[in-house]
Write a protein that binds this DNA or RNA. Structure first.
Length: 590
DNA sequence: GCCGTTTTCGGCCCGACTGTTTTCAGTCG
């Protein structure tokens, strides 16, 4: 069962209740349940029967009964009843910027508008601006909202957001009066996809900073330009990116950073703590009556609320506030803990450079693409593992057994001349349709580290893709499963693989799971990383690099793992080369 | 709908901006 389906049902119930005009707190409760379900890494049915769901704050009797009904019958009666109240297409109107539940209700009840095409017609005919509460400007804003929706590609990848952020950051950095710049929002939290990019600026003259931003050459369209906030669509990373620049005074910078980093739910929880202590928290500071307790420094907000400082990657209301109260937050993995890249391709298969070009790059500090973060450079590495494709990946120019044997020989020779870094011989071997591998065990036994990946038949049944993955792990020479779900963000859905079963089997077979750091993949994703680490499964964070530049993608994988509460000890490529080799050898002995 | 070392009923986070308004509702983050 897909948790996303159930989560969307609760989301839809909340949306319909908003349009119908139910109590907003009740609606909030439904939204919360939807979010909790989408955060469950494993099977909801399992979480239900184990009692884990019932113990989760935010899920009460009523929601529990609905979830139970869904697990048993595949549907929820209350959901069906709500759906019967409005035309199904009405919900799409909520996705139009500028249209909220009240607006949707108004155009539906008074103009019989039920869909986006009908809304467009009503706008063009001037009927919307005649409605009470609407006007010319409001209907123009909705028209622009529809245009934006039609040309927007939705959420963008982390690397695209990072590019846009750096563009704006470089521009504002040189502006006089700017004292500090900080990326905020979902980009700072390293959520796997980004809706809009938030840049926070400390400066006195907000209007000038906003003007500098909205008049920049890369701006395609200005959405808002006030004294504290500028909003624009900018041309970056080959697409239009929505960027918000917010300007605050220096003495509020920390509070604003906290506030605009979110997540929304994390902030709600934090403000609840403030209220219970008789304090008030907003984007300007933490206050006791009129007195400022904290504001300039983000860490002080947490300190004064008597919770440990919470890293932005953890701010999702997934238990981090409880852990911060108990001083039991994990010490998160950072890029500087990474001692080598275990998944790289050369021009022997589908990479674009030679082994030694990658090695030389790995011997220097490796630059990431987000300058405002600690660890924007890391390395040099102690080892790098060459893992070209195997023969079945014909499109990727996979190596034959003979070619791989030659490459191993070449690597051994190269190592004789190298100091400070070791080249490991590896392979990204294909997992075939029946779960067997593309190379025989004799050849695999020559390698230092073996990644096994599925590259074909990704759309086949849950049973099939799960069986293939589990069987590959049974091979004593397979050390790691590459990109375990096979998803490509924005392009391809993940395989319907039973992640809980994969994690369980990985623990049993002494096999690691990859956290593929490529921003198209981020596979495993954050909540699966957490589930794996909790099960004692080792992770390999690796770039799957096909070029020297790709080595710089490592930090996206590290952030994804850290979002899953992963620590240094959970990650194999924080080990020394010797320790790593003996870890791999241990499986072969059993 | 959820929740409780001040509550099993009565609360439930905060502010900016915009537009349509003569004091506020809707939307957004």
């Amino acid at each position: 069962m897909r948790n996303s389906v159930l989560s969307q049902i609760f989301e839809q119930m909340a949306d319909i209740m908003e349009i119908v005009g139910e109590d907003r707190f009740r609606i909030n409760a439904y939204h919360k349940v939807a979010r909790i379900i989408s955060d469950i890494p494993g099977d909801t049915g399992t979480a239900l029967s184990s009692g884990q769901l019932a113990a989760t704050p935010g899920i009460g009797k009523s929601s529990l009964a609905k979830i139970e009904e869904f697990v048993k019958t595949g549907k929820i009666t209350a959901h069906q009843q709500l759906l019967a109240k409005i035309p199904a297409t009405l919900l799409e109107l909520l996705s139009v910027p500028g249209m909220g539940p009240k607006g949707v209700k108004a155009v539906y009840e008074q103009l019989n508008v039920k869909s986006i095409p009908e809304l467009k017609a009503a706008l063009a005919g001037g009927r919307v601006s005649q409605l009470p509460g609407f006007g010319d400007k409001k209907s123009q804003a909705i028209t622009r909202g529809i245009e934006f929706l039609e040309k927007s590609t939705g959420r963008i990848r982390l690397d695209q957001a990072a590019q846009a952020a750096e563009l704006v950051r470089q521009l504002l950095k040189s502006h006089s009066g700017v004292r500090n710049i900080q990326t905020a929002g979902s980009l700072r939290r390293r959520v796997e996809t980004i809706g809009d990019v938030d840049i926070l600026v400390a400066a006195d003259k907000g209007k000038k900073v906003v003007a500098a931003f909205t008049s920049a050459g890369f701006v395609q369209e200005v959405l808002a330009a006030g004294g504290t906030k500028g909003s624009a669509i900018i041309d970056a990373a080959g697409c239009g990116v929505h960027v918000d620049v917010r300007v605050v005074a220096e003495n509020s910078f920390g509070a604003a950073a906290q506030y605009f980093t979110g997540s929304k739910q994390h902030n709600v929880r934090l403000r609840e703590i403030a209220v219970k202590s008789g304090l008030k928290l907003n984007e300007y500071g933490l206050f006791k009556a009129e007195k400022v307790l904290a504001g300039a420094v983000e860490e002080d907000i947490y300190k004064k609320l008597k919770v440990d400082y919470i890293h932005p990657f953890l701010r999702e209301d997934r238990g981090e506030i409880e852990a911060a109260k108990k001083h039991s937050l994990p010490e998160l993995i950072t890029s500087r803990d990474i001692l080598g890249d275990l998944h790289v391709h050369t021009n022997a298969s589908d990479g674009n450079c030679q082994i030694m070009q990658l090695v030389k790059a790995a011997q220097k500090p490796i630059p990431g693409d987000l300058a405002d973060t600690a660890g924007s450079k890391w390395g040099p590495y102690k080892y790098i593992c060459i893992t070209d494709h195997s023969k079945s990946s014909a499109i990727a120019n996979g190596l034959s057994a003979r070619q791989l044997a030659q490459q191993v020989e070449q690597i051994r020779k190269l190592n004789e001349q190298l100091k400070d870094i070791t080249i490991l011989a590896g392979s990204e071997v294909d997992i075939l349709a029946d779960g067997s591998l593309d190379f025989d065990n004799k050849l695999l036994s020559e390698l230092d580290f073996v990644i096994a990946s599925i590259h074909s038949g990704l759309a086949s049944s849950r049973e099939k893709v799960t069986m293939r993955t589990l069987k590959a792990m049974d091979n004593p020479y397979v050390n790691c499963i590459g990109h375990p779900t096979g998803r490509l963000i924005g392009q391809r859905e993940p395989m319907d693989v039973d992640i809980a079963a994969v994690i369980k089997h990985a623990a049993q077979t002494h096999t690691a799971l990859e956290v593929n750091a490529n921003p198209y993949r981020l596979d495993l994703k954050d909540i699966h990383c957490r589930m794996a680490a909790e099960a004692g499964v080792k992770l390999v964070i690796a770039t799957d690099a096909h070029s020297v530049e790709n080595l710089g993608l490592m930090h996206y994988g590290v952030a994804t793992a850290a979002r899953g509460w992963v620590t240094r000890n959970d990650v194999l490529n924080t080990y020394s080369a010797a320790k790593l080799k003996s870890w791999a050898a241990a499986k072969r002995k059993t």
